[in-house]
């Protein structure tokens, strides 16, 4: 039950991953759906609270690249619109 793990203050700053700007740093707040995709993201180290950078977006609204620790990975925007993040100031 990931979505209930966040307190109310944080919830206000939560935005969908797909709206994050290139070059921004953010932390994973919640995965609103729990499926193989989000499970794999967590296995690779993108767990709740993990900070990452949105490095770049592929042309024509293609995949987006995230970087955290020594991992760099790309995900499709259509698949990741259920992931909520909190930008790190």
């Amino acid at each position: 039950m990931f979505r209930f793990g966040i307190n109310k203050d944080k919830k206000k700053q939560m935005i969908p991953l797909t709206t994050l700007a290139v070059g921004t740093r953010a932390a994973i707040a919640s995965f609103s759906s729990n499926n193989e995709f989000t499970e794999r993201l967590q296995e690779m180290g993108l767990t709740r609270g993990t900070e990452f950078t949105l490095v770049r977006k592929a042309p024509f609204n293609g995949p987006i690249e995230l970087s955290f620790g020594s991992v760099r990975l790309a995900v499709r925007t259509t698949q990741s619109d259920s992931i909520m993040v909190v930008p790190v100031l």
Partner: peptide, 10 residues
């Protein structure tokens, strides 16, 4: 069957 996820190795 497999969620689309591309890992960029160094």
């Amino acid at each position: 069957t497999l969620p689309f996820l591309l890992e960029f190795p160094p």
